[in-house]
Every structure is written in structure tokens, then in C-alpha cells.
Simulated scan of single mutants.
Amino acid sequence: MSKELSKQELHNLAMNIVGKDLEDQGYEFLGVNSKLKKDPQFVALKNKKLHFVIVRHITYPEDPKKYDAVFMETIKEHALKFKARTFFAGVGIANSKDYELPVLADEYVINYDGLQEI
């Protein structure tokens, strides 16, 4: 029997998916923070430009593209002090057998469309 994933485990899963995507796009990681509620999750360089990436795991039925605009503006203001670009990476995670059930360690599907610039 597979166990239900905790909030931290869901967050780590989302971090792995976004981290792999950033790596594949040629980003160089300067800082990675996988603790819940510690932002940004990734501070990375690409083309000599600094990027702040906020990662959130979003459980069904919430929309992984929807983010807290007020919070993201705060992050963007902080990023601008460092001349950094700000991105949101929402990773939708659901139980693969029944979207209404909790997400299990080996039974999940991912809905991730990449970075959204703020």
C-alpha cells in the first residue's frame, strides 16, 4: 500500500520537476531552498541574468497556473532590487487513479506547463 504524500513531500516533488526543467533550459543554480514557505525556491542565472523562481505544488482541483498576485508582486519588488526576473512555477499534482483522492507516493499525475514570468 502506497502512503499519502505530506505537504513537504509534494513540495519536494514539485521542486524536482521545476529543477529538472530549469536544468534542461541551461539555468545555473546559485541557490536552492526546498523548505516550505521559504521563497524564492530557486535563484538561478541564465545568460548572465538573475532569475527568482517561486515553486508551488497545487493539488486538484486548483489551477496550477493561478498564483497569489499580491504575494508575487512582493517577490517581484524584492527581485528588482537584485535586477532579477521573477517567475512562478505552479505544479499541479493529483492522484492518478482518482483526482479526488489524496496523492500517493507512486500514484500521481503532473500538470506543469513551465515558468510564468511575473
Rank of each mutant, 00 (worst) to 15 (best):
K7E: 11
K7A: 15
Q8R: 12
Q8G: 01
Q8L: 12
Q8T: 13
E9I: 01
L10I: 08
H11I: 01
H11W: 01
H11T: 04
H11L: 09
A14R: 06
A14N: 05
M15R: 10
M15S: 07
M15V: 11
M15K: 09
N16W: 04
N16K: 12
N16D: 10
I17S: 07
I17H: 09
I17C: 12
I17G: 08
V18A: 03
V18Y: 07
G19F: 01
G19R: 06
K20I: 07
D21R: 07
D21A: 06
D21P: 02
D21V: 10
L22F: 07
L22Y: 04
L22Q: 02
E23C: 09
E23R: 10
E23Q: 10
E23W: 11
D24N: 09
D24G: 09
D24R: 07
D24F: 04
D24V: 03
D24K: 12
Q25R: 12
Q25G: 05
G26P: 00
G26S: 10
E28P: 04
F29C: 08
L30T: 04
L30Q: 11
L30F: 11
L30W: 08
L30I: 11
G31R: 14
G31T: 15
V32K: 01
V32Y: 02
V32T: 06
V32W: 01
N33V: 02
N33G: 01
N33E: 14
S34R: 11
L36Q: 11
K38N: 11
K38C: 12
K38I: 03
D39R: 15
D39A: 13
D39S: 14
D39N: 13
D39K: 13
Q41Y: 03
F42K: 05
V43L: 06
V43D: 02
V43M: 05
V43E: 00
V43G: 02
A44G: 08
A44H: 00
A44C: 09
A44T: 01
L45M: 15
L45R: 14
K46E: 08
N47L: 08
K48W: 15
K48R: 13
K49S: 14
L50H: 06
L50P: 14
H51D: 12
F52P: 12
F52S: 04
F52H: 09
F52Y: 14
F52L: 11
F52R: 05
V53K: 00
V53P: 02
